[in-house]
Design a protein around this nucleic acid. Structure first.
Length: 484
DNA sequence: TTTTGAGTTGTTCGA
DNA sequence: GTCGAACAACTCAAA
């Protein structure tokens, strides 16, 4: 008897290790046909941004090589996902489609649609977890409700015990011998052209599973012990920088969890860093949990009283923020790091987001959208939850009076000014802490360094102290709003 | 049902 | 320079 092929529909699980869908497909005995479908329409307004497409390009190239090295072929198709999968199933006589679950609202609708269509065609569809440590359905309060506060969710997750151990790459995967026709990756034009603004990306990242594991190991070797404190320092490599790898599923959170534990075993100094790192992994889970249960999180304020908040409209201020020309060095450094590398340090994300929302009073949607287009780790759940957190409109959000001071934050977390110096080179000759408030520089020093505020570097586009007062008043007024 | 303790990430001010 | 309080009340989650 011949066994029907199984289509492995790859999505945000671009890895071979600890991939349950692959594992099940390989174990089933049928030949495996790995497929990636580029569907430009299915995600609607949350289709991949430019930086994400760059990453996808490199990650698919890597995965394709890994599969080829094992005697298989990754089939690339572009078009409507449901139709494409049906077509491929018909072409190959596949008996089943296996996939890893995704949690974006559009992705869940797509899964349901694919499921129904395949059933009609007599093709089985199986979904597997693994993108999260725990499936959203596994985590509930004692009253059976989804969590709205991080800490109780963390405790509940810990109470469930250790997450599943990661599984190795299946040995000797039987791939489909004669794979159907595939698009050429280069023809998808995912890599930006004319102009190619991604040069800084290549220097900063190694997309793909091997790059992800390398990144994790480097982090565990060099930064885990001091992670609790150093993760706040944009001037040093104190964070894991795993976010894009996790987003594309090049590495599973369970693997990160267990490998971090193993690395910390017998290293008493690593205990604090380990716990902080595990908690960060669970922050990612918390965002997914929120998006899963409140699917309009990317568009609607979690706290409804924010619906009628009087956000300002200021196109030129928004543009200054996007380009890193606000006149606040730590803000500008962050926005330029983002533009150049497709990534921004977490501490600086908070500072820049607080600046947009509180100092400029611009709607968090604008920041969310900009980050979506420019981040290589753009992730619907994390992005939406985090912007709402800063705005104060989210679940478990920052209190309204928490307004970051871009000067003191700079002095505190970039004490030598090295981060600003790297990304705002026109200020490089200023000493710290002056570099964080260049407008206070004595005229003599300005002359010596050739810095002309307003010409070589902008004057602050708002006065922070005044902006803070304005924001405090506006956000405080929300308290008195009664929901009609 | 009611009560209780707690809740990522900050800043400023005054003692 | 350092430290604690105020900033705000509300809701969540569990006992």
């Amino acid at each position: 008897m011949t066994v029907k092929p199984i289509i492995l529909w790859l999505r945000q699980d671009l890895r071979l290790t600890d991939n349950r869908a692959l594992e099940a497909a390989a174990a089933s005995g049928g030949p495996v046909l790995p497929v990636y479908v580029l569907d430009d329409a299915v995600a609607g307004e949350w289709g991949m941004g430019g930086a994400s497409r760059w990453w996808l390009d490199k990650s698919l190239a890597d995965l394709s090589e890994q599969i080829a090295a094992r005697g298989g072929k990754l089939v690339l198709r572009r078009g409507d996902t449901r139709a494409t999968l049906l077509q491929l199933a018909a072409e190959t006589g596949a008996g089943a489609v296996y996939a890893t679950r995704a949690y974006e609202p559009w992705a869940r609708r797509l899964e349901d649609g694919v499921h129904a269509a395949l059933m009609d065609a007599g093709v089985a569809f199986r979904r597997f977890g693994g993108a999260l440590l725990r499936e959203p359905e596994e985590l509930r309060t004692k009253a059976g409700e989804p969590f709205k506060v991080y800490t109780p969710m963390w405790r509940a997750l810990v109470a469930l015990g250790e997450p599943r151990r990661p599984s190795p790459v299946p040995v000797d995967i039987a791939f489909v011998k004669k794979a159907p026709k595939s698009d050429r990756l280069a023809d998808w034009s995912l890599h930006p052209q004319k102009p190619d603004w991604s040069k800084g990306f290549s220097a900063a990242w190694r997309p793909g599973e091997a790059g992800a594991v390398e990144r994790l190991d480097t982090f565990l070797d060099t930064a885990l012990d001091e992670y609790a404190a150093d993760r706040n320092r944009p001037d040093i490599v104190g964070t894991s920088r795993l976010s894009p790898h996790l987003h594309f599923g090049e590495i599973s959170p369970a693997l990160c969890w267990h490998r971090a534990r193993a690395a910390a075993a017998g290293r008493p100094h690593a205990e604090k860093g380990l716990e902080t790192f595990l908690k960060e992994l669970v922050w990612r889970e918390f965002s997914y949990h929120l998006l899963f249960h409140w699917p309009d999180l990317p568009s609607a304020p979690f706290r409804p009283e924010f619906k009628h908040f009087a956000w300002g409209e200021d196109a030129s201020a928004l543009r200054a923020w996007q380009r890193g020309l606000t006149g606040y060095p730590i803000v500008d450094a962050g926005m330029r790091e983002l533009w150049t590398t497709g990534w921004m340090h977490n501490r600086v994300r908070m500072i820049t987001a607080s600046f947009l929302i509180k100092d400029l009073m611009i709607h968090w949607h604008e920041g969310e959208r900009w980050f979506w287009d420019t981040l290589v780790d753009a992730d619907l759940a994390s992005n939406a939850a985090s912007w709402q957190w800063v705005a104060g409109s989210g679940a478990d959000a920052a209190p309204y009076f928490r307004i970051f001071n871009p000067i003191t934050q700079g002095i505190k977390f970039d004490p030598d000014g090295a981060y600003v110096r790297r990304w705002v080179p026109e200020l490089a000759s200023l000493p710290a802490p002056l570099i964080h408030e260049p407008w206070t520089t004595p005229a003599l020093l300005l002359r010596e360094t050739g810095i002309e505020l307003g010409r070589t570097y902008p004057m602050p586009i708002v006065d922070h102290a005044a902006a803070r007062e304005r924001a405090l008043a506006a956000f405080a007024a929300l308290k008195t709003v009664k929901i009609a």
